[in-house]
Design a protein around this nucleic acid. Structure first.
Ligand code: MG
Length: 226
DNA sequence: GCGACAG
DNA sequence: ATCTTGTCGC
């Protein structure tokens, strides 16, 4: 069996997780999301140093386009990054932050893919199923699949199916959006016009909040040592 | 076997 | 992801 795990010396654990992911994919809900019902969304991102992670959840009101809540929390790094298994590294920290969010959120954005994944079980899909809520994956690079550079908004094709969309930013850069859970392929362009239309500001805010939180940890440690 | 490979 | 300041370009 040659696959993305073959470089691992001992891969029985990831083979096991692969089976879990294949089962998860059967539970994904790709029904249309009522876009008119979306009031508040959250973006989640995680920053790391060698032993600590900081997850940030930024909650954003669609109508006012303003931040209404921000949560950060630190944790231990529990797993390395392995392509196809980002949820094992990022999921636990993201969950911890999301549990502290006070507002009701109608949609959660994750920094990574949803069903645009070898087993249709990316970070956004995994978290959406765990949380029983609508999620979307927003990635800066492609993991699997193909798209057309000729189209400003191109479908991402994987095994002959549409699994998301690639959005052009100017002429060179692109980002990639796929349903996580409780969201259809057709919803993706609709939602992006609501929260974008470019790379979502709330996603960037989560990214910078997580980094800022990590620096806060480092500085706190420095003063204790100094 | 080789190369690709979210963050 | 992370290491990192100023610098080139729209
Ligand atoms: Mg990130």
């Amino acid at each position: 069996m040659t696959n993305e795990l073959s470089f691992l010396p001992e891969n029985s654990f990831l083979e096991f997780v692969t089976l879990l992911q294949e089962q998860l994919a059967n539970e994904v809900n790709l029904n249309s999301l009522p876009c008119s019902k979306i009031k508040n969304i959250s973006a989640v991102d995680v920053a790391y140093d060698s032993e600590r992670s900081v997850a940030a959840a930024v909650i954003w009101n669609i109508r006012t386009r303003r931040v209404i809540e921000e949560v950060t929390c630190s944790d231990r790094v529990v797993f390395p990054y392995i392509p196809g298994f980002l949820a094992l590294r990022e999921g636990p920290a993201a969950l911890k932050a999301l549990r502290r969010v006070k507002h009701k959120v109608d949609l959660i954005l994750f920094d990574g893919h949803g069903i645009a994944h070898p087993r249709a079980a990316g970070l956004a899909t995994t978290m959406g199923i765990l949380l029983h809520c609508p999620t979307i994956g927003i990635a800066k690079r492609l993991l699997v699949g193909e798209f057309s550079k000729d189209l400003p908004i191109s479908p991402i094709r994987l095994n002959g199916k549409n699994v998301g969309y690639s959005f052009a930013l100017g002429s060179n850069r692109r980002f990639y959006v796929s349903p996580g859970n409780m969201c259809s392929i057709e919803d993706i362009p609709r939602v992006m016009s609501l929260i974008g239309p470019n790379y979502p500001a709330v996603m960037r805010l989560a990214d910078s909040a997580a980094r800022k939180g990590l620096k806060g940890l480092e500085n706190r440690t420095d003063s204790n040592i100094t």
